[in-house]
Amino acid sequence: MTLSVPPARAVDLRVQPVDDVLDRVERSLRVRFDRDSLIRKRRSIGGRTDRGTWVRVERRSLQRIAAQGGNGPETAAALCGVAMPQWRTGLTWRDEDEPVMWRADETELVTAPPVGQAALVTEDPGLPDAWWAGLNTSLDALAAQATPRIATPDTDSITQDLVDATIRQAFPEAVDLTIPEWAPAHGDLTWANVTGPDFCIIDWEDWGTAPRGLDAATLWGNALAVPDLAERVWLERQPDLESRSGRLMALFFCAKVAGPYAHEADPRLEPARKQAAQLIDKLRST
């Protein structure tokens, strides 16, 4: 018999009162948040502590935990050669009223700010060569490791079926979409999850095995509004992005931008459509 997990109510932590959650974390981890430093996102809240660390609190449905687990930052601590905040301790508890779990992770405080305030950038951040070297070293080291976890970009477990459905919705003319190579990935490598000018990758809750090139394609796609930056990402991660799997991941990203939920005001939209046509041609010829 298969047991079903009830769906959780959609909650936006940017507006939802969470004082009781923060109080519980402070008591359990014996820290105090700098409440003025809190960064509130839809699914998480993070802030500095009086211990000179950073604590990130996430609300995750039992459905997502059943599919992937809820300890991404903790398991990522075992990765070698990747620039990320050092993980220190964690706390997990089940909500008394809803089918969700709360998790708090205390990590090293990273003082460099995120490169982008959102997933995409609309201006060139002028990153130094050392930043690009850090990106390459970290992504190469990550891909060389192994994990039973499955990456969850946009909270969905990435599978061959998901890639097929996403691309076909936007580009039904696309050819064979079979992904030949899979490797560990961050799963949400947007410009908001990399810091600069000192390179570091943050927010590891979605990491896991994914098609080769997912991270590079995500960073590239979120730079499409800045052509020179997108070109730099492509050149730096050329081995990934010019593999068949990498081209499919670039097309997968373009499909999410240009598909059924496309926004005409999105500065990535027209570049994504043009890039998709080129990618489909390349995939047909290889």
Score class of each variant (00 low, 15 high):
R40A: 15
R40W: 08
R40Y: 08
R42C: 06
R42F: 12
R42M: 13
R43S: 15
R43K: 11
R43A: 13
S44I: 01
S44R: 12
S44E: 02
S44H: 14
S44T: 12
I45V: 15
G46A: 11
G46D: 01
G46M: 07
G47K: 08
G47E: 05
G47T: 07
R48P: 01
R48D: 09
T49Q: 14
T49R: 15
T49I: 11
D50M: 09
D50V: 07
R51A: 14
R51N: 06
R51D: 05
R51Q: 12
G52Q: 10
T53Q: 13
T53W: 13
T53N: 14
V55A: 13
V55S: 14
V55M: 13
R56C: 07
R56K: 15
R56E: 08
R56W: 04
R56I: 03
V57Y: 10
V57D: 08
E58Y: 13
E58C: 14
R59Q: 13
R59F: 11
R59M: 14
R60G: 00
R60Y: 00
S61E: 10
Q63D: 01
I65E: 09
I65F: 05
I65G: 06
I65R: 11
A66L: 01
A67V: 02
A67C: 02
G69S: 07
G69P: 06
G69M: 04
N71C: 01
N71S: 05
N71T: 03
N71G: 02
N71I: 00
G72V: 06
P73F: 05
P73A: 06
P73V: 06
P73N: 03
E74N: 00
E74G: 00
E74P: 00
A76W: 03
A77M: 08
A78D: 05
L79W: 10
L79Q: 00
L79P: 01
L79R: 11
L79T: 09
C80G: 00
V82K: 06
V82C: 02
V82E: 03
A83G: 00
M84Y: 05
M84W: 07
M84R: 15
M84T: 12
M84H: 15
M84S: 15
P85N: 08
P85H: 12
P85K: 10
P85L: 09
Q86I: 01
Q86S: 05
Q86L: 02
Q86M: 01
Q86P: 00
R88A: 01
R88Q: 13
R88F: 04
R88C: 01
T89C: 06
T89M: 03
G90H: 13
G90W: 07
G90F: 04
G90R: 09
G90Q: 07
L91P: 12
T92C: 10
W93D: 05
W93L: 02
W93S: 04
W93R: 07
W93C: 09
D95H: 05
D95R: 02
D95I: 03
E96M: 12
E96V: 10
E96D: 15
D97S: 15
D97T: 15
D97V: 09
E98M: 10
E98G: 04
P99S: 05
P99T: 03
P99V: 06
V100H: 14
V100D: 11
V100E: 11
M101F: 01
M101V: 14
M101Y: 01
W102D: 06
W102Q: 08
